[in-house]
Amino acid sequence: MVNTLRAAAISQRFGSRVVLDAVDLEVPPGRVIGLLGPNGAGKTTLMRILFGVLTPDAGRVEWGGRAATDGDRRSWGYMPQERGLYRDMRVIDQLTWIARLHGLDRATGERRAAVLLEQLGLADRAKDKILKLSGGMAQRVQLAAAMVHEPSLLVLDEPFSGLDPVAVGFLSDVILAHVRAGRNLLFSSHQLDLVEDLCETITLIDRGRVVLHGDLRALKAASADRYLRVDVAVDPSWVDGRLAEPVTTDASGTRLRLAPGADPGTVLDAVRANGTVRDFAVEAPSLSELFLAAAGHQAVDDEPELQGSNR
């Protein structure tokens, strides 16, 4: 059955600190939804509220247009930011046990676990204890634990944190396969540039408030900001500050933000007058730049994620 997860006007305080302030979130099926923002923005707290681990001070969580029940939540899958596995338990036993907690019988749980381990390249480690696995392998087992019951909604909290590029690609494929099957998926990340290509719809959150929400391509298209990328290091003196200003310079070149109404060709000519340009492009703002425009500051790790309880 196709359902949409909706969180409406979620508010949460820990003591005197406002962690979430009337946050709305929508996770329709068949789309990759990114809950994005810097550490401390309130992403993990919101995910805990979605799963009923925390009860919000205000707001509601709906599934299919009605209040989410324990039974609904049991059909979802959750991979927390910090890995949560019994280190002294065998991989296959752990996955089967979690499947049973989700309501599957033992035989089905074992079969699902075996299939997942095969897909995740861990079939030969099924009988090993978690403590014998590498960090990357344990992370894949954690993902399997979230998916062993074939969840309708998969929620991944900072799934790309600490992964190498190969693992990021692998996990991205898993995410895409899940949504292509018409299911719901929400993941969080503070690494905006890393997940930019993966996200279809984003909710940008900062200090407990939603600062931007919508289809990523539409948001980019709607933005008045435009950037010129050139494959040469640009000195600020080469361009008139009223036309453009360099925002980043690295080994691959420079990215310049064009002033409203500025002609990209004029700026490009100014650069070419000082250096050799072999490659260039006029681009919409990146996810980080959208965040900067919306929040008024960089999406950097400026404070630790708040953690707490109110239950």
């Binding site: 799963f51 009923g52 681990v53 949560g84």
Partner: peptide, 14 residues
């Protein structure tokens, strides 16, 4: 401390 409880609390009641 291992955050196992967080995984489990998303499935079963405390």
């Amino acid at each position: 401390s291992n955050r196992i409880s967080e995984v489990l609390l998303a499935i079963v009641k405390p």
